[in-house]
């Protein structure tokens, strides 16, 4: 028996909004420690790693490890049926063909249950090593979303150049170019808006706007985003999910011919 309950369905709604443009389907690995998802987009250029710890749920029970292949589009449709104040419970048997989503209104007068068929999926699990990054930038997630949106109008790629002084985002296209520079915050008292850079070595890499635009769909999950960058390895774009876990997006850099 697997059962996981969240008082706020809005967290799960936001998680689905943050992955539905990248993933068609994904395997949800459920164990005692929580729920983990690792999935690549169709082109295998990006990877989503989602972790929801069991202690972050209001109720969590997982008698044996489960791998549940789920259609992200169907799951997203189901979660749209939950009210923002509803409690959500995921429930499955030990060898499940289906998973149930149960929504309960805060006054307990409405109970809705949606059952979704699981998908048999070939599991392709990649080993992501612990990596020490040359630059780690912490900044407002809203500011990052805005920069991605603004610069995407000018080119297909955004170049991120990070030095000790700050971080510079550049897009160059046929119609012109755009760049935004953010200086490291001197007084980081306003923590959420601060730009904090931990740098060992300056880096400069380019990434596809199309994927970055998908990643910033996670903005409602967290007021801060963390970008980890090293030359010649994938960018990591990380959003915390309250006290329950985090979502990390990995994106392969563009390589200059």
């Amino acid at each position: 028996m697997f059962e996981a309950r969240l008082i706020q369905s809005s967290i799960l709604k936001k998680v689905l909004d943050a992955v539905k443009d990248l993933l068609n389907e994904a395997t949800f690995e459920c164990s005692d420690s929580g729920i983990q998802v690792q999935a690549m987009d169709n082109a295998h250029v990006s990877l989503v790693a989602l972790n929801l710890r069991s202690d972050g749920f209001d109720k969590y029970r997982c008698d044996r490890n489960l791998s549940m292949g789920m259609s992200i589009a169907t799951m997203s449709k189901i979660l749209k049926c939950a009210g923002p104040e509803d409690t959500v419970t995921l429930r499955a048997a030990d060898n499940p063909d289906t998973v149930a989503f149960i929504f309960e209104s805060s006054n307990k007068e409405k109970l809705a249950e949606y059952e979704m068929k699981l998908i048999n999926m070939d599991q392709e699990h990649l080993g992501i090593p612990e990596t020490f990054y040359s630059c780690v930038v912490k900044m407002s997630s809203h500011e990052f979303a805005r920069i991605v949106r603004d610069l995407s109008q000018f080119g297909e790629n955004i170049t991120i150049a990070c030095t000790k002084e700050g971080v510079k985002f550049t897009a160059i296209g046929d119609s012109g170019s755009a760049n935004v520079k953010l200086a490291q915050t001197a007084d980081a008292s306003e923590e959420n808006d601060a730009v904090i850079i931990e740098m060992q070595e300056s880096v400069k890499l380019s990434f596809s706007c199309r994927y970055l635009t998908c990643f910033v769909k996670a903005t409602p999950l967290c007021s801060q985003v963390q970008l980890s960058i090293s030359n010649d390895v994938p960018l990591v774009c990380e959003y915390k999910i309250g006290d329950i876990g985090q979502i990390r997006y990995y994106l392969a850099p563009k390589i200059d011919d």
Partner: peptide, 14 residues
């Protein structure tokens, strides 16, 4: 920019 590796190039299956 013409080249872009894919995730398994960076993170091989264990």
């Amino acid at each position: 920019f013409v080249l872009q590796k894919v995730m398994p190039d960076y993170f091989p299956e264990p």
